[in-house]
Every structure is written in structure tokens, then in C-alpha cells.
Amino acid sequence: MTDTTKTTSLEKQPMEYRPSFFKATMAIVQKDLSAEFRSRELLSAMLVFSMLVILIFNFALELDIKVRQSVTAGVLWTTFAFAGTLGLNRSMAVEKDRGCMDGLLLAPVDRSAIFFGKAISNLAFMLIVEAIVLPLYALLYNEVRIFQPSFLGVILLGSIGYIAVGTLLSAMSVQTRTRDVLLPILLFPVAVPVLLASVKASGGLLNNATFAEILVPLNLLIVYDVIFIAVAFMVFDFVVEE
């Protein structure tokens, strides 16, 4: 193609050319995922870290069969929360350091598409880690009850809420002076409800609670997800604006 055709095609669609919201979001997700699958920096760090946390828990709590009954959900969620912060921090820091964030912000796309793109790729990383950690945990501790669909559903809901808030806060924390230490300090107190509701719901499922018993934490989890996705979506503009 020659230069002239390029300019004409640009002139045909002058400044208002904008890819659709969905397309823009998916482009960001694709960029993140393909970059990650090439380097595997983030996933390997998150995975090794999760393994280490579980190893430490094993000895710190002496996870024999009786203890496991009550703490499995807590151990898993603590592991995911820590690994999640690691991933969130890194994924946003990369954008900031290499100046990619400025490039993304200059792109003619809706700012909230950037938020959703980053959130979906962060969620993908977290789910990949969970997809490896959960079977491993089941294998190590002979905990096959993990593989019931409702348990996995709770894990998914919890991860969504955690990542929604985490993506927003990591976009803030990377722009501060104390960035590396700030994200967990900002994120954990705000994410307390999502973590506790997930622990309550998934713990209940592991202990064969009836559906009515886990309905309340499940509802709260959904409420949290909806509210915080909506709010993060609305305020993300203010966080990245220069």
C-alpha cells in the first residue's frame, strides 16, 4: 500500500475514529496476555510465591486433617490475596515504567476500556494461578471437595471483586512515591469484605453447609462485585488523568 492511500483512508475517518469499546478492551487484554505468555515473568512469580505461602502455612498451622477442616478456605484465600497483590503491582508498574500508560492514554479509546482491559488481564492471571494452585492443594491434602462447581463459582466471584478494586488501586499506587509498599496497605482494608465473604462462603461449601447458609455471604459477594466494578469504572478516569 502506498502512502497516498493511507492518508486518504485517514481522511475518510478523521479524528472521530474510535474502535468500539469492546474491541479496545480486548486489544488491551490481548496485548497483556501475549506479552505475559512470552516472558512469563508475572505468572511464574505469582505461582512460586503461592507455593511458598502454602508451604509456610503447612508448617505454621500444622495442617493436619482436623485443622484443615476449618482453615482450608482461609489458607487458600490468603494465598490468592497475596499472590494477587504481587500480580497487580507488577502489571501496573510495567505500564508505568515503560511509558506504556502514556501511550494507552493517548490512544483514542474510552479510558474505562483501559480499566476493563487491565482488569480482565489481571483477572486472567489470577485465575490461571488459582487453576494451578487449587488442584495442587487438592493433591497435597487430598481435598477433592474443592472441585464442586459452586466452590469454583465462589472463587471466581471473589477474584472478580478483588481484582476490580485492586486494578483501580494499583493504578493509583504506582503513581505515588512509596508505590511498592502502598498497594497492599490500600487494598487489604478495602477488600476485607470480599475476602471475608469468600472465606465464609467457600468454607461453608467445604463443610457441607446447606445452600441457605451460604446464601448471605454469596449475596454480599455479588453486591460487592457489582458496586465496586461500577465505582471503579466511573472513577478510573480521575485516577489516570494528567
Binding site: 478494586v165 483501580l168 469484605p193 448471605v216 465505582v231
Partner: peptide, 15 residues
């Protein structure tokens, strides 16, 4: 965010 999460925290811990 803090103002929104505090009431949900309360409801969750009440469980």
C-alpha cells in the same frame, strides 16, 4: 471506596 466498603464489611463480619 472506604466509605462504600465499610458498611459491607460490617454486614459480612456480622455473619
Amino acid at each position: 471506596l472506604g466509605g462504600l466498603s465499610a458498611p459491607i464489611t460490617f454486614m459480612v463480619i456480622r455473619l
